[in-house]
Simulated scan of single mutants.
Amino acid sequence: MDVPQPRFSDQEIARIAERIGRPVVLVGMMGVGKSSVGKRLAGLLHWNFIDADDEIERSARMAIPEIFDTYGEGYFRDGERRVIARLLEDGSPTVIATGGGAFCNPATRQLILERAVAVWLDSDVDTLVERTARKDNRPLLRDGDPREILAKLRNERAPAYSQAPIHVVSANGPHTQTVNRVLEGIAQWL
């Protein structure tokens, strides 16, 4: 794991963390780095990190691919919305990584926009293909060419993601660079 070398001093990061006043939620496509960036961002802010997908699996007592196979995507999205609502309920200082489709659900998106600071992590399709190939737990990539599926999903989801007030590009390279860009985006937004 690369150790973030922030462009901000510890004091500046502490001031940013204090001013945010609500959770930071990372949204974007699968493979964009929401969990990796989120863990590093939470560490810098001295906040908790929560991966919404892990919480969904814990609540359902099933892996996400099993939920999709057994109940379908609609059922999964409803459970996802309920879990994210619970995670945002108390407004505690937390960085939350969501699943790729979470912010596309209008009810979930509204919850996040009202109760948190949404950060859209974006990436080009080549980077998404390379990163998603590392894991075989992506239900939406099972039936077809991953590049075509990811390009189609990215185009379909961009209008929803663009509603996040902060947009950060996650390019190939150390996640440290993306973490720094997220901090810069939050500081400008504040």
Rank of each mutant, 00 (worst) to 15 (best):
I166F: 06
E148L: 14
D143F: 10
A63P: 00
G173M: 08
I13M: 04
D122I: 05
A158G: 11
H175F: 15
N180S: 10
A52K: 12
I50G: 11
L121M: 04
E148V: 11
A85L: 08
D136E: 13
T132E: 11
R138P: 07
S36P: 10
Q163Y: 13
V95S: 05
A118E: 06
Q188K: 15
V125H: 10
D90F: 05
A60H: 08
V168Q: 03
S170F: 03
A102Y: 04
N155C: 12
M62Y: 07
D145L: 06
G91D: 06
E184W: 06
N48C: 10
I50H: 15
S170Q: 04
I16W: 06
L111D: 13
V3F: 12
G79A: 14
D126A: 01
V25H: 00
V117G: 05
R22C: 06
I20L: 09
D10Y: 01
T178Y: 01
G43K: 09
P165M: 08
D124N: 15
G38I: 05
G31E: 00
D122S: 06
K34W: 03
E114N: 09
L140S: 06
R138W: 01
P23A: 03
S9E: 01
G31N: 03
A116D: 02
V117C: 07
R86S: 14
N155V: 12
G100V: 02
V24M: 03
A118K: 02
I13T: 01
P146E: 15
M30N: 15
K135V: 09
I64T: 06
R115P: 11
E156F: 00
A187Q: 03
L150M: 09
I64P: 05
E148P: 00
P165W: 03
L44A: 01
Q177S: 14
K34C: 01
Y71M: 15
R134V: 04
G28Y: 02
E80K: 08
G79E: 12
R147E: 00
A42S: 01
K39T: 11
H175P: 08
E89F: 10
A97M: 02
A158N: 10
L128E: 05
W120Y: 09
R15T: 03
G101I: 09
P146S: 11
W189R: 07
L150C: 15
V83I: 12
